[in-house]
């Protein structure tokens, strides 16, 4: 009996089934958004627009870009002739050839002949050092 009651109640519920439907606007909106209702040209327009945008941006970059310039031939720096400044003589000595040490080293030997005629400083230094050795 309980089972029959339950079935009857189910029938009662089914009879009172709500019959609401969504409004047609929902379907219309979906149709508007549908891929098959999108104009195929829109994709082409989008691509064209993007290409134009790319060109404008590229042109802008080119306009602002610094073009590379040819390098001028490099100048080789000319070395100025520098006149040697006269050396200040701060002290003078007598001729080194007259000194005792020079007399010592100027002995008669052909293979050891130091000539300091051109250079006035070398013999004095050498003689001086030898003189020191002999001391």
């Amino acid at each position: 009996m309980a089972k029959i009651d339950k079935d009857q109640f189910e029938e009662y519920m089914e009879q009172n089934c709500p019959v609401e439907e969504p409004s047609p606007e929902v379907f219309q909106h979906l149709q508007k958004e549908a891929a098959w209702n999108q104009p195929p040209a829109s994709a082409k327009h989008t691509i064209t627009f993007l290409l134009l945008l790319l060109l404008v941006v590229a042109a802008g970059f080119l306009r602002n870009a610094d073009l590379p310039k040819a390098k001028k031939p490099e100048k080789i720096p000319v070395l100025e002739k520098i006149d040697p400044e006269p050396i200040n003589i701060i002290a003078t000595v007598d001729s080194p050839f007259d000194s005792g040490i020079c007399k010592l080293i100027r002995f008669d030997s052909n293979d050891f002949n130091l000539s300091f005629e051109d250079d006035s400083s070398g013999p004095s230094m050498l003689a001086f050092s030898r003189g020191l050795d002999n001391i």
């Binding site: 709500p18 969504p22 929902v26 979906l30 958004e33 891929a35």
Partner: peptide, 27 residues
């Protein structure tokens, strides 16, 4: 629509919004 409306006690507008959202990816 009836399932949403009666099971979740939604208003008609709320139900239609959800219905639209679940069908939208299909289109």
């Amino acid at each position: 629509f009836r399932y949403l409306r009666n099971s979740f006690s939604l208003s008609r507008e709320e139900t239609e919004d959800i219905l639209q959202n679940i069908f939208l990816p299909w289109v």
